[in-house]
Simulated scan of single mutants.
Amino acid sequence: MQINGIDEKVLVARMISGDKTAFELLFRFYYPGLIVFASQIVLSTSEAEEIVQDFFVRLWEKRSNISNNYSLKNYLFASVKNSSFNYLKKEKIKENVIADLKQVVKEHFLYEADIYINSELQSELKRAFEKLSPRTREVFSLSRLGGLKNDEIAQKLGLSKRTVETQISNALKILRLELKDYLTLLLLFELLNL
């Protein structure tokens, strides 16, 4: 197969030896088709783009492991298909975990509001939240307790989405440390806004 007048096997050999131009030509040639292919599996163009981009990053990083003896097209499509199925599997597992947790929260006596009034856990929660900076506490509360998405929080507070993600990550690190004896509660905080 010819890509921009160059034999594909020549481009693959050049890519394996570290030629970024050859890699870019292969990327530009296969990227649109791989996006359409992956989006048929995951039913989301944005997720398909992320899957394909991640795959090409790995391809470049592990280019020395590639053999030039087989069809690059077959390799690319098989790899993206596997990555797409792995994405679906991960999403399904996450969905199931959240559904199970919601059921536990609904049925288990430990999640009844009255138990937390004037309880040790309420004191521990208050103490843990006081360890957060005011901005981190605000961002985390809007996310996990207010149910807002990161984009919505960023817009509401005039922050970048990346800053919001960093604040939430920092809050979870501190709360993991401060509430290590309350594992189920921590799990709930981490899953609430996934």
Score class of each variant (00 low, 15 high):
I3D: 07
I3H: 09
I3C: 08
N4E: 15
I6A: 05
D7M: 11
D7C: 10
V10P: 02
V12S: 00
A13P: 00
A13I: 01
I16M: 01
I16F: 00
D19K: 01
E24T: 07
F29V: 03
F29D: 10
Y30K: 01
Y30E: 00
Y30S: 02
G33L: 03
V36G: 09
A38W: 04
I41W: 06
I41H: 04
V42E: 03
S44E: 05
S44N: 15
S44W: 04
E47R: 14
E49N: 13
V52G: 02
V52Y: 03
F55I: 00
F55C: 01
F56Q: 01
R58Y: 00
W60R: 02
K62G: 00
R63N: 01
R63Q: 00
S64D: 04
Y70D: 03
Y70R: 12
L72G: 01
N74D: 06
Y75L: 01
L76D: 00
F77K: 05
A78Q: 14
S79W: 03
V80W: 02
V80H: 03
K81S: 07
S83V: 01
N86F: 07
Y87V: 02
L88N: 04
K89W: 07
K90L: 09
E91A: 08
E91K: 15
K92L: 06
K92V: 02
I93Y: 11
K94N: 09
E95M: 10
E95R: 13
V97A: 13
V97Q: 14
D100K: 13
L101R: 11
H108W: 09
H108F: 08
F109L: 12
F109N: 12
L110P: 00
L110H: 08
Y111V: 02
Y111N: 06
E112G: 09
A113D: 12
Y116S: 08
I117M: 09
S119G: 15
S119M: 08
E120Q: 14
Q122V: 05
S123V: 12
A128R: 04
A128F: 10
A128I: 06
A128C: 09
A128D: 06
E130H: 10
P134L: 12
P134C: 02
T136S: 11
T136L: 03
R137P: 02
R137N: 11
R137W: 04
F140M: 09
S143R: 14
S143Q: 05
L145Y: 14
G147K: 15
K149G: 06
E152Y: 04
A154L: 11
Q155W: 05
K156F: 07
K156S: 09
K156H: 09
K156E: 09
G158D: 07
L159Q: 07
L159F: 12
S160D: 11
S160W: 02
K161Q: 13
K161W: 01
A171F: 00
A171L: 02
L179D: 05
D181T: 08
Y182D: 11
L183Q: 12
T184A: 15
T184C: 05
L186Q: 04
L187W: 06
L187V: 10
L188Y: 14
F189M: 15
